[in-house]
Amino acid sequence: MVTAAEGAGAKGAGAAVEIRNVTQAFRAGDSDLPVLDDISLSVRPGEFVALVGPSGSGKSTLVRLLAGLDRPLFGTVEVDGVRVTSPDPSRALVFQDPTLLPWRTVRGNVAIGPQTRRALARSRARIDDALALVGLTDFADAWPAQLSGGMAQRAALARALVNDPAVLLLDEPLGKLDALTRRVLQGELLRLWQERGFTAVLITHDVSEALVLADRLVVLSPRPARIREVVEVGLDRPREQSAPEFVALRARILALLDEEATTQPDELEAAH
């Protein structure tokens, strides 16, 4: 798994993701709560796809299935033709909360991946590279409790990237950051994606963010989530948020989401 050429981050390292007829439901108290309803989606290798939808629509559930943390009730998830049944370091996940282990320094957190493969000793350079990649070299020995929100999320990103993932799953990774930090990190994410060539699946409720980053937007309906529409963005990067095409696209997607939000009378009933 660990070769000499690693860390070069050759373009085209991304994997194809295939979601086929996935349905997922949970039991909430006495009632069954359907969350995903027959979702099918193909993501090309190295593509950047964003899932947007109202909050509580089951976006995070889908990402957990992709990560292999949960298994779907019906349907399959495949990555490069292999069915996903358990978590794997080739599919990295970054949460909304950085979830750094507080008793490990930044470097210790980034080292978790190599350590689980007993490759800590020969991964020193990789870990340093990952820290440098997100600009945390000077904070390698800091405790997570000392970091600001943006820095903590950078550390979480480095921790995911040190495994050189083929798929990077981003579950609202910038959701809790202030507007300024968020903009900076959006740029960073784009740069990392372009440099490393992984397939990226981003979950967000921020339509602008999705439009700045993604190749395609998948608009989901409220719970139980169905794919409402898939929108090709087709704008050159870096994208200017004030460009007329951008504004028009944004308005169209927001209209789609609004429409969905108002035509869901049964949503509350389903939750009870």
């Binding site: 978590p87 599919r91 495994n163």
Partner: peptide, 23 residues
Amino acid sequence: SYYDVTQTLGARSWFLVLRVSLP
């Protein structure tokens, strides 16, 4: 979430027991 995140990083049960839950 500590277990979730370490699992996606490749951790197996012993790592979860000794290096996540115990600390």
